[in-house]
Amino acid sequence: MTKAVIIILMFCSLKALAQNNEQENVRTTIETFFEGFHKQDSTVIKQVVADNIILQSIGRDKNGNTIIKSDEFSQFLKSIVSIPSTVTFEEKILGYNIQIDGNMANVWTPYEFWLNDQFSHCGVNSFQLVKMNDAWKIIYLIDTRRKEGCEY
């Protein structure tokens, strides 16, 4: 092997390792978000989101038409922390598809939502993240919600 080939192989290996580390950092950001969500801890959630985060959900109205609902982040936090202790809930993440380009990342996470140990609905979360000051922050979260067709 020539020195040039060895240098190219080393460079490619380092680049792949850096990409894997960034994917792990992005995944940790999403996992931290859900840790705060499940613990109903707004301070944990706030650590991994940007100040101007956008929250939206895609669903259907009573006539079956597609609708997009936008939520204020402060209202989202209030709703999470105000869930009574008698209510149990869990959003089970079924997988992660992480794509990164420079300081931008997208994470696609199919999920099931369980309320009081009963299946409620399923869907997919799509997170958009930006790396700011060496930390990944969620800037946009949109999800789908449905009760049927939930086999992933």
Results as ranks from 00 to 15, higher is better:
49 V>D: 13
148 E>N: 08
34 F>M: 08
55 L>N: 11
126 S>R: 11
27 R>T: 12
99 Q>H: 12
17 L>W: 07
20 N>E: 10
135 A>L: 02
55 L>S: 08
70 S>E: 14
34 F>D: 02
79 S>T: 14
119 F>G: 03
20 N>V: 00
138 I>V: 15
121 H>F: 02
4 A>P: 06
68 I>Y: 05
38 H>N: 08
5 V>I: 13
59 G>D: 09
99 Q>Y: 10
49 V>W: 01
15 K>C: 10
111 Y>M: 06
116 N>I: 03
62 K>Y: 05
94 L>F: 11
144 T>S: 15
151 E>W: 03
37 F>Y: 12
65 N>E: 15
81 V>W: 06
137 K>A: 11
95 G>N: 10
67 I>S: 10
92 K>G: 04
12 C>A: 12
78 K>Q: 15
16 A>L: 12
63 N>K: 10
51 D>H: 13
74 S>Y: 01
19 Q>K: 01
26 V>W: 02
98 I>R: 00
48 V>D: 03
64 G>V: 06
13 S>F: 06
71 D>E: 15
45 I>L: 12
20 N>T: 06
109 T>G: 06
107 V>G: 02
150 C>G: 07
126 S>V: 09
136 W>R: 05
65 N>T: 13
57 S>Q: 13
71 D>T: 14
7 I>V: 14
60 R>H: 07
101 D>M: 10
39 K>M: 11
126 S>E: 07
94 L>I: 06
111 Y>R: 11
81 V>D: 14
129 L>Y: 05
111 Y>D: 00
61 D>E: 13
33 F>K: 00
105 A>K: 07
6 I>N: 02
94 L>V: 11
35 E>W: 04
89 F>Q: 02
4 A>I: 14
87 V>Y: 00
49 V>A: 08
3 K>H: 11
62 K>C: 03
60 R>T: 15
80 I>Q: 07
64 G>A: 04
101 D>T: 07
111 Y>G: 04
100 I>R: 04
103 N>E: 12
115 L>C: 00
133 N>H: 11
119 F>W: 03
71 D>H: 13
19 Q>Y: 08
80 I>F: 04
50 A>P: 08
144 T>E: 13
64 G>E: 13
72 E>K: 15
112 E>H: 14
4 A>G: 07
61 D>C: 15
110 P>M: 08
25 N>W: 05
7 I>E: 14
87 V>H: 07
112 E>C: 01
69 K>V: 15
63 N>A: 13
83 I>Q: 10
86 T>R: 02
101 D>A: 14
37 F>G: 00
100 I>N: 08
9 L>A: 11
41 D>N: 15
98 I>Y: 01
44 V>M: 07
119 F>R: 00
75 Q>S: 14
135 A>P: 00
86 T>F: 01
54 I>G: 00
97 N>K: 14
126 S>T: 12
36 G>D: 03
70 S>T: 15
63 N>G: 12
77 L>K: 11
145 R>N: 08
19 Q>D: 06
